[in-house]
Amino acid sequence: MPESLTTQFQTDFQGLSLIDSSKKPEYERPFFNHLDSLNKYDLLFTKEKSSFQKTVKDKFSLSDYLGLEQFVMENTHLVEPTEMQAQEIDWNEIDNAKDFLQDKINKLLGHEQISQTLKPLIEFTIDSFENYAIYTYMHPKSTHNPWMSTHHLLLSGYMYLISDKEELVKEFHPTLYGQKNNQDENVGIITKAKKERKFKGVILDNRLTIQMLVLNYLKKIAPGYENPIPKKRILQHIEEKGITYSDSSFNTAVLLPLKRTLLIGSSSRGYYYMEDNDDFKTSYKFHQSKYAGIEFTMNIYKEGAASRGISL
């Protein structure tokens, strides 16, 4: 265990404070990134084994969440570079860091800490940190730690809870389940900021199931860079299953997480399932050209700023 890690956790928590008020754009994306990162392991595993299929009726539950958590911890080799062996975990050190965080949270909450209602939220926040710490111990330099985004959220001053227990979620946010787009969405994400008894939240849509469905569809219909299909056709496929997504939501909730697994690629002609190195190279070159285009525009801005005397 690197000595600096324990010190780092303690330093981080010493400066911890709760944010004045929760803002949806601040917490929504990190949570979805967290769930996408967990799901990435499942998608990669599915690719290896080709044994799990999902249907649109599959509900994502807390039990699935805990299962993903367990699966990720036991299978970091699916994502971490092969030369990086998992390192030993110092459970005592993690216990110490958890105690430190618990004390800090108690201080920040003041008299609110004794509230039984807050107990699951405090526990979930500390559990998330424990997962972050375990993964960090195993892979100190990893950029794939699925709890990285929730940990940053904690350091930004948020406490949080993920639950599929409707009664519990309602205690924090009585109207959250009113935001459901369909009956199968039963996982609520609750956040707490500084203000007493003030919670905000978001309902998890069925993006994790849709990611799996789209992956299976591309694997069957669009294998390799020579057989891409346009986004419109993928959207039609999931619409036939009763799911509607706006174009931009579909990009962020489904296509982007799938691309980041390196299981699907894209070109100017559409999306495809990546089977070999040529598929990989084609997608890489496509993104490189887009990146070059953005870089060209950025350089024009930089020159413009310089000639106008604007400091960027």
Binding site: D42, F45, F52, S63, D64, L66, G67, L68, Q70, F71, E74
Partner: peptide
């Protein structure tokens, strides 16, 4: 199995 029905050893 894990709680989400993935094989574990």
């Amino acid at each position: 199995f894990t709680t989400n029905r993935r094989k574990t050893f």
